[in-house]
Design a protein around this nucleic acid. Structure first.
Length: 604
RNA sequence: GCCCAUAUGGCUCAGGGGUAGAGCACUUCCUUGGUAAGGAAGAGGUCGUGAGUUCAAGUCUCACUAUGGGCUCCA
């Protein structure tokens, strides 16, 4: 047996630890390294080690479950004391002490009935056992500590060195908010020191890039306690960025045959009853009464677009008809869910609705996926797609759902686009494709969404006249690419760490005139650049040149341009590269060409 | 919504039962400098909001609001 052997993987992909494998396992060995399987074992064992340390520090601790998650592991438990961030160090220290005792991790089995008896005075273990099917259960033991667990585990504590407890939080027993709140500690572990170091470094980098921090520093957006939670204010610089993004998207929509429309912010409650929002989405809606009539602030834009479609008779020749709107919507998100720009109560979707025939669904979905692809490429995002199926709370017949869901899958499959399935994750009116992008920290965010809807057109009696001169109900495709400007800009901010590319940068150029006599020249250049829709600032404050260069440099602008006697005389600019700090000179005309080229990169 | 934590000038933070401090930013003046902080002076908070305890409260207690970390949910 190799020194580094910590388990096996069988031909079904199941991980079997050395304690369970027997003498001659017919399976592939898992070595102690950073492979997914290896980390799964290491992290789960680290969770047990943490539990053992907690037991020694807090003798009354009772444990619930301690699984692995995407990033590391956690353990839920109950203690009488309050555990804070400061206590993590203490627990880590105890964990390291335990490692020195060189315990082996041993496994033994018993029936579930025996386990219920063994843990009869541990109500949390009883809860765990309730969730386990009858039969044999396993116990893992290291020193005096033992825990009900199905594994897998490393053979001995000597494999656990490179871990860190990352945070404490509360979590409901079994995720059920009617049950008690347990203490949860998250941690991470790797096979080697370097990987742990890299991980910690990455977390620090993520903290630096936090869009809430950068957004405040760059004066992009703000919140205000007096106005209410989850209601963002866009400051001048944030608005510049946002307008640029809107303009790029506007042109991209027009190129692809979309027509701009706009619906009202509030509509009578009956509209929302017809649509099904009142019943299925009511708890998230803001309702109000005007002249004894109930109204609802729109949480989605579809109803408005449907009214516009219905305003005049439509022919099959009009289809597919694509309406788009930067639709402001309000949703009552739970107060605890609010998070910077990433989760707010008022936001603007880049929303569109495509009215088409069932036969046109596939090609329309493909067109949308192409659109998504060009937007994501523009910003250098990786993304993946997920088909979400019928949720519990839904309207419409099962066979209609089946048809629509299959339509989405077919469109992707036929074009060799990979996707995964999210069972029950659909909208209440139809299945959808969610586009998840990966940000700079590797976190996945749902942004774009494509939803096929057979239900709303029927409910609102939307019709068109077909080739056969009969009335037909069109299909509606709801789609957003960014998802919302708020969230997307939040993600972009972290993705670029505030160093936006020229075509969306809030301030694109800062001019630093060497002395007062050069301010006029800077102003002249600035006014010429406004015609290219380029936002410039002039740093002519009464500060030293060095100070102003420094301040400009810290603004994360693409260009810092210094102008002095030489530049005024030769009609040139002295450019400072924001990354390399190198300087180069261009004639103003050449500079305009360079800028235009970079602006063109923002065309899709 | 639930659990825990936090809340001091625009920002970052110190203070801690006897009526507020620093750095940056800001204002004014001197300086007109060739690429990451020139110098001087000055203004600005009653310590998230509301109650309570106390002779006395940023400082202790409670409620609320907001923010942060989670749970849940989601663009």
């Amino acid at each position: 047996m190799s020194e580094n052997l910590i388990g096996y993987i069988d031909n079904q992909g199941n991980i079997i630890d050395t304690q369970s494998a027997g003498q001659n396992p017919d399976a592939k060995a898992i070595e102690y390294d950073n492979s997914n399987e290896s980390l799964e074992i290491i992290r789960h064992s680290t969770a047990h080690l943490m539990a053992q340390a907690i037991t020694e520090l807090y003798t009354n601790a009772k444990f619930f479950v301690g699984p692995n998650v995407d990033e590391g592991f956690y353990y839920d438990f109950r203690v009488d004391e309050k555990i804070g961030e400061e206590d993590l160090k203490k627990i880590e220290k105890k964990m390291k002490e335990l490692i020195k005792k060189k315990y082996k991790i041993e496994k033994y089995e018993m029936t579930k009935a025996e386990a219920l008896e063994k843990f009869s005075n541990d109500d949390l273990k009883q809860e765990v056992l309730k969730r386990i099917p009858d039969g044999t259960v396993s116990i893992y033991k290291q020193g005096d500590f033992e825990d009900l667990c199905q594994g897998p585990h490393v053979p001995a504590l000597r494999f656990l060195h490179n871990f860190k407890l990352t945070r404490v939080a509360g979590a409901y027993l079994g995720g059920d908010e009617t049950k008690e709140m347990l203490t949860r500690i998250y941690g991470i572990a790797f096979a080697d020191k370097e990987s742990l170091k890299d991980y910690i470094k990455m977390m620090e980098e993520a903290k630096k890039r936090d869009h809430r921090k950068i957004g405040a520093e760059m004066e992009l957006f703000m919140f205000n306690e007096e106005s209410g939670a989850g209601l963002p204010f866009w400051m001048p610089k944030g608005s510049r960025l946002r307008y640029k993004l809107e303009n790029i998207l506007h042109k991209a929509h027009r190129k692809r045959g979309y027509e701009p429309v706009r619906g009202p912010e509030i509509l009578k409650a009956d509209m929302w009853r017809t649509s099904g929002h009142y019943a299925c989405y009511g708890e998230n809606m803001y309702l109000t009464t005007i002249d004894e009539q109930e109204y609802g602030v729109k949480p989605m834009n579809c109803i408005g677009h449907i009214q516009i479609f219905k305003q005049s008779g439509k022919s099959y020749r009009d289809l597919p008809l694509k309406y788009y709107e930067y639709g402001v919507v309000h949703r009552h998100e739970q107060s605890g869910a609010l998070h910077g720009l990433l989760r707010v109560r008022e936001f603007t979707q880049d929303d569109a609705h495509i009215f088409c025939t069932p036969e046109q669904i596939a090609s329309e979905v493909i067109d949308i996926v192409e659109f998504v692809d060009s937007v994501m490429k523009l910003f250098g995002f990786e993304y993946s797609m997920e088909v979400a199926t019928k949720p519990e709370k839904a309207i419409g017949d099962d066979d209609v759902w089946e048809l629509a869901t299959q339509g989405l899958k077919d469109a992707l499959s036929e074009n060799n686009l990979p996707f995964t399935i999210d069972e029950g994750g659909g909208a209440f009116y139809g299945p959808k494709i969610d586009i998840k992008i990966t940000d700079a920290i590797g976190r996945k965010w749902q942004c774009g969404t494509v939803q096929v809807d057979f239900n709303l057109p029927e409910r609102f009696e939307v019709e068109y006249v077909g080739e056969d001169n009969e009335r037909h109900t069109p299909v509606m495709i709801h789609r957003a690419i960014l998802g919302s400007f708020e969230r997307f800009i939040g993600i972009l901010t972290e993705h670029y760490a505030g160093e936006f590319p020229l075509f969306i940068a809030p301030t694109q150029i800062i001019f630093v005139p060497i002395s007062d006599s050069h301010v006029a020249y800077a102003k002249e250049l600035k006014s010429q650049l406004i015609d290219l829709d380029i936002d410039c600032e002039i740093f002519d404050k009464n500060d030293s040149l060095n100070k102003r260069v420094r301040t400009a440099e810290k603004q994360r602008v693409p260009y810092v341009v210094i102008v002095g006697d030489e530049e005024v005389e030769n009609k040139t600019v002295a450019i400072r590269n924001r990354r390399t700090k190198e300087q180069y000179n261009l004639s103003f005309d050449e500079f305009m060409v360079e800028l235009s080229q970079q602006l063109n990169e923002g065309k899709i």
